[in-house]
Design a protein around this nucleic acid. Structure first.
Length: 285
DNA sequence: AATCGTATCAACCGCGTACAC
DNA sequence: TGTGTACGCGGTTGATACGAT
């Protein structure tokens, strides 16, 4: 479990990439694929470490990257998904075709977080019943998320067969299976994918513009879609404000999704652990 | 026009995990 | 089984752009 020595090498260039370097990297990957990132810079004639090449490719040069401002739907999705998985930017990015984890992370830190703070939705007070309704609901979501992680970790550690069944059910039933499904959906710790393929996830998926996601891979094809012009508009301040109000005071708060099963004076996404069987887990996720 | 403060985002750093040997 | 290596992720930094004074 040692540290990667990849960037320890002296003499490797750092800092901003030049157009020439970009071209070398793109040409090489389009011809040969990236293969081993460690070997790539040498093979491509780049004086960079593999890590830097991978980052440049995944965050900037990849052909399927979507440029431009985040749409209203994307912003809404980010806020919602963040409420479930927290700072799991790669998970969130997997649900937003063409957006990178780095981009989403930056956008969250510079835009969305600021808006939430201004509205008092960030930094919730202790206890789910304190504060304004909107803040309380945000706290409830965070509580639910933590509980979900704890429960599923517990369950997955004791039931590998349930995991296999879950994987089978999730990959067959969803019309918006993603690249992540193909890769990591079988991991018992992948809480998000379980949630995403549950009723909760399907509710969230409703916000995605029709046709914006390729059915099998969950990514935009070159030249595909992008016709959802109405979704491409940039939100003005009033739109954004209203969006957060909507999220906090309606969807996050509501039982309209059938999420909250009150107990112990609070709420929970799940029935008590002792009634959670493998079968019920399969049904739920 | 110059200076200063703030916002943005590309890129880096370091850690955790998976995997090969 | 233990160790080393490579990769991916999230947090952070620093350069640059932009707006205010």
């Amino acid at each position: 479990m040692g540290r990667a020595p990849c960037c320890d090498k002296k003499g490797l260039k750092k800092g901003p990439w030049t157009p020439e370097e970009d071209k070398l990297l793109v040409d090489f990957i389009q011809t040969n694929g990236h293969g081993s990132w460690r070997l790539l810079p040498k093979l491509a004639g780049l004086n960079r470490c593999g890590k830097s090449c991978r980052l440049r490719w995944t965050n900037y040069l990849r052909p399927d990257i979507k440029r431009g401002p985040f749409t209203a739907e994307e912003q809404k999705s980010i806020v919602q998904l963040h409420g479930i998985v927290g700072n799991k930017w790669s998970m969130i990015a997997a649900q937003l075709p063409g957006r990178t984890d780095n981009e989403i992370k930056n956008y969250w830190n510079t835009h969305l977080k600021k808006h939430l703070r201004l509205m008092g939705l960030d930094d919730p007070p202790p206890g789910p019943t304190a504060g304004c309704p909107a803040t309380r609901h945000m706290a409830q979501w965070e509580t639910a998320r933590l509980e979900a992680e704890a429960r599923l970790s517990l369950l997955s550690s004791s039931s590998s067969s349930a995991t296999a069944a879950t994987t089978a059910s999730t990959t067959s039933g969803s019309s918006s299976s993603t690249a992540a499904d193909a890769g990591d959906a079988g991991k018992p710790s992948d809480v998000f994918l379980r949630l995403w393929n549950s009723d909760i996830g399907s509710s969230f998926r409703k916000v995605a513009p029709p046709g914006s996601v390729k059915e099998e891979e969950g990514v935009l094809l070159p030249g595909e879609d992008s016709s959802a012009a109405s979704d491409e508009r940039e939100m003005d301040a009033a739109d954004e404000c209203q969006m957060f109000l909507d999220l906090a005071c309606e969807e996050f708060a509501g039982d309209e999704l059938g999420l909250f099963q009150g107990r112990y004076g609070g709420f929970s996404l799940f029935p008590p652990l002792d009634v959670l069987t493998e079968a019920s887990l399969d049904t739920a996720f």
